[in-house]
Nucleic acid binder design. Structure first.
Lengths: 141, 141
DNA sequence: TTTTAATTTTGTAATCAGTACAAATTTCTA
DNA sequence: TAGAAATTTGTACTGATTACAAAATTAAAA
């Protein structure tokens, strides 16, 4: 638990109880939860927690590069505390989101030839796949 | 103008006046407009047009692979009628969205090594870059 | 043609994720 | 300890998107 606190500080984030709880939850739940899910899960053990705080905190985490806010789902934002470069796959049938490794582990923009567009300064790269996950492929009649 | 009609039919889309107008607008305006922008632009010359129709039509176009609905901007959906594979860059300062070519023109998933994940059936790939566009780099003090 | 069925469009009302804002609380600093 | 700065909270609001059912248009059948 102090691990989380140290992790936040290493990212330049002041470790308040709320921030620790949120980051702790994200590190334990890598299933790309929604904001709602984070709030619901923490609300019971921390009844005073406000949804605005969750939003504020996530915005802060993003700015400090401690979380990725994914727009892969058209309805809700999804959270991901894994900061190593990787892509995401969303199943169009069950909606689940999967982490997907990228060739030679990273440098996604370079892989795609973005380095040749020297005029643009890329600060982040997001790669979203959509299709059918293994389970839903076999379900499909 | 009949070109658009034929294009829709080639995609398996019945060419109603509204659909023709919307597709025509998207083909003429490649600046990744919002739904609102499409509606506003067409509303004057087609006063009966409803915003619901715009939404319905775009959903249909997407299903028929005649348009890409981009989630790169966190506020609004953006439209793109260019169906050749390419990536998108959004400037974090001015918000503009740019088309970006991809190495050897396409096969984006393969470039990233997604073909090796044989268990997932990828149907579409979206690549979003964020950073500073050339113009905003020089503006930045 | 007429009639009927199917498709498409329209407008209004509702939903719901996300934000604005100011008060309350906590933490830091002098 | 007092006061300033940072953080959290709750409520009200916004605004994009959807639900839905009526109206209009188009296609098909007779």
């Amino acid at each position: 638990m102090e691990k989380v606190q140290e992790y936040l500080m290493s990212k330049g984030i002041r470790p308040s109880p709320q921030r620790i709880a949120i980051m702790d939850y994200l590190l334990d739940n890598c299933n790309h939860p929604t904001v709602e899910a984070v709030y619901d899960a923490l609300h019971t053990s921390m009844p005073t927690l406000s949804k605005t705080t969750v939003y504020n905190t996530l915005k802060l985490f993003e700015k400090k590069q401690a979380v990725q806010i994914l727009n892969i789902d058209e309805r809700n934002v999804r959270l991901d505390a894994t900061m190593e470069p990787h892509a995401h796959f969303q199943c169009m049938r069950c909606g689940k989101i999967f982490d997907v490794p990228v060739k030679n582990g990273g440098k996604m923009a370079e892989l795609l030839g973005m380095n040749e567009m020297t005029d643009f300064e890329v600060q982040q790269t997001q790669i979203y796949y959509k299709g059918l996950c293994p389970h839903c492929q076999s379900e499909k009649e």
